[in-house]
Design a protein around this nucleic acid. Structure first.
Length: 436
RNA sequence: CGGGGUGUGGCGCAGCCUGGCAGCGCGUCUGUUUUGGGUACAGAAGGUCGUGGGUUCGAAUCCCGCCACCCCGACCA
């Protein structure tokens, strides 16, 4: 994308409404624009990040054996009356009426709907297990939206729903998602730690929140250094095999949010390995048995010919929230520092002297080699403006081309994360950028 | 949902207390200048002062209602 023609409205000053770093930077870098409280429009660069996050989630869900569907945003109230949640959900559910005065709602989640859909097809235990997921916008009418996209009212979420014949089967489905989540967040350059979550009336220990560490996190968390040091992507899990060893590793080391914190157990962790930090929840997995299958009448015929209500679980990842969370975990005074996997563009090409034949030619070659994963700053602006905008936008690489270097065919490559610079030939610069 | 605050040009703000031509900085446009970290000079465009009503010769300013947005808390992915 050529900046001279791009819709990438960066701001020099911080809009008054933005308090935390990610919100401030998302507005300043021109990623989103608020349209009303807790509701955002995604601008080109922001949308590219959102899509990349979404795609990583999709690939890991598919790899773990889940199948993608797409359910609607608007749901009939009738389904929610069957589960009993229409009255329970309260004001956070946006209720609307259609022209026939039928009660509808903008879905805050999809357990009822997916259960109803699955009911139409699953007749036999041979139709189990299955795991269906979708990536869709949801709406929760929060009393007080804040922190930009981290806690908006409208948000993009991946939610998966598993159906199993037995509790043991459901546990395997749960572990599949557990492991898939570890990989998903690791691919985004995040250290996400699964922490035991409150299971409410269901009980048991099959609920985990995945939390990333960031200074501005919303809640206090306590975690063992061993978990932070673990290289998730070094493993290639066999999703059909026994995943217990991986899950056991993660659940055997201490990790807890403030609500679930246990001082006695924490004291058992060697002092040097105790990490107390702030965290942001980016995912949540949950087993809930027959809570929805039973009331909604989902049952299949078991091997013995008797009807069985499938054991279910649900597994969410806040995709739009992740964009903010990644920035919280990765930024500095100058701006965003995108991890390579989710950066809107892998490199910014800075032409320090548009109009200079050497600079123009070299930049065009770079752009041709890197497009579409590069922005080309061909604007008639001062060098300082370009440097500042590039730092703010957080592209992992900056390829700086000035008259001196251009004359010698050299590009100055800067790594945003480290500030490291190197003078390279065009070919080497392109190779370095593409190799990351 | 309790408490607090703010709405003035695209963005950040002053003016309001004490009513009297609507201002400043940034950005934008034109020209000159500058050319490796938000350059300098000159000129220009751009505002129903959130909204409805009231008081007054006269309201951004005072009074009443409404709306929107933000912050703290409780709540939440």
């Amino acid at each position: 994308m050529r900046l001279s023609r791009a819709f990438l409205p960066t701001l020099k000053e911080t809009p008054a409404e933005a308090q935390i770093a990610s919100h401030r930077l998302m507005l300043r870098a021109g990623l989103v624009r608020q349209t009303s409280a807790g509701i955002y429009a995604w601008l080109p660069a922001g949308l590219r990040v959102l899509r990349k996050v979404e795609q990583i989630v999709r690939e890991e869900q598919d790899r773990a054996g889940a199948q993608e569907i797409l359910m609607p945003t608007i749901q009939p109230a009738e389904l929610w009356r069957e589960s009993g949640r229409y009255d329970d959900y309260g004001k956070e559910m946006l209720r609307i009426k259609d022209r026939h005065e039928r009660d509808m709602l903008y879905g805050p989640t999809n357990e009822e709907m997916v259960t109803d859909i699955f009911k139409g097809f699953a007749k036999s235990y041979r139709d189990l297990p299955r795991n269906l997921y979708h990536i869709q916008w949801k709406f929760r009418d929060e009393v007080r939206p804040r922190f930009g996209v981290m806690r908006g009212r409208e948000f993009l979420m991946k939610d998966a729903y598993s159906f199993d014949l037995t509790k043991e089967g459901a546990e395997h489905s749960y572990r599949q998602m557990f492991v898939a989540y570890l990989r998903t967040f690791a691919r985004m350059g995040l250290k996400a730690i699964p922490m035991r979550a409150d299971t409410g009336p269901i009980g048991g220990n099959l609920s985990h929140e995945f939390i990333i560490l960031a200074e501005t996190g919303e809640s206090q968390v306590f975690v063992s250094q061993d978990l932070l040091d673990y290289d998730v992507l070094a493993d290639t899990p066999d999703y059909l095999g026994d995943l217990s060893p991986i899950v056991n590793f993660w659940t055997s080391h201490y990790a807890a949010t403030e609500e679930m914190h246990d001082e006695a157990a924490w004291a058992q962790v060697p002092e040097a390995k105790r990490v107390s930090a702030r965290g942001i929840e980016v995912g949540h997995i949950f087993f809930f048995g027959t809570k929805y299958s039973a009331p909604l009448g989902l049952s299949v015929q078991g091997p013995d010919g008797k009807p069985v209500a499938p054991e279910m679980g649900s597994y969410g990842i806040g995709i739009s929230r992740l964009v903010g969370a990644i920035i919280e975990a990765s930024h500095d005074e100058a701006g965003i520092i995108w991890p390579d996997a989710v950066a809107p563009f892998s490199a910014a090409i800075l032409n320090l002297k548009p109009g200079d034949a050497g600079c123009d030619a070299l930049c065009e070659q770079l752009y041709a080699a890197l497009s579409p994963e590069a922005v080309y700053d061909d604007r008639e602006e001062r060098a300082g403006v370009k440097f500042n905008d590039a730092d703010l936008s957080g592209h992992p690489w900056q390829a700086v081309v000035g008259p001196r270097g251009a004359a010698a065919g050299r590009v100055e490559l800067k790594r945003r994360a480290t500030g490291e610079r190197a003078e390279l030939s065009l070919e080497d610069a392109v190779a370095r950028i593409k190799g990351a």
